[in-house]
């Protein structure tokens, strides 16, 4: 098992956060959040991977066949659902901001500060 997937996960998290920090457009920012979130999918799948393992569907494989960890797959699926909800809420808020205030630049936010 190589370290490559872990490096990919860390890279996705960091580049996603860099994207958020430097973002000038709310839709871009929400997509960067999704990029950062996808790092967790990669991390989970990498953790559950077993060399030579097959899909953990036990209906038609002989007992004792090595399989990858099904728990992380369930976690990843749950995670995808959660992420979809968050993205939907954020995009809805973005639409409202654009409609009402005519801006999508996160740096123009801050009516209340200090």
């Amino acid at each position: 098992m190589s370290v490559l997937p872990y490096l990919v996960a860390v890279w996705l998290l960091l580049i996603g956060i860099v994207g958020i920090v430097t973002s000038r457009h709310l839709v871009h920012l929400v997509l960067c959040l999704s990029v950062a979130q996808s790092s967790t999918y990669v991390l989970f799948l990498a953790i559950g991977y077993r060399p030579g393992g097959t899909a953990p569907i036990f209906a038609d494989i002989p007992a004792g066949t090595p399989v990858v960890d099904p728990v992380v797959q369930a976690l990843t699926l749950t995670d995808v659902v959660v992420e979809a909800t968050v993205t939907a809420v954020l995009l809805a808020l973005t639409v409202q901001v654009a409609k009402r205030f005519g801006t999508v630049d996160p740096n123009e936010l801050g009516a209340m500060r200090g």
Partner: peptide, 20 residues
């Protein structure tokens, strides 16, 4: 609206760190 958006963005990043 702004408070909600700021809240959502920062806390989402926090959630990713937690999940990681």
């Amino acid at each position: 609206l702004e408070g909600s958006l700021t809240f959502a963005i920062t806390n989402s990043v926090g959630s990713f760190l937690l999940l990681f």
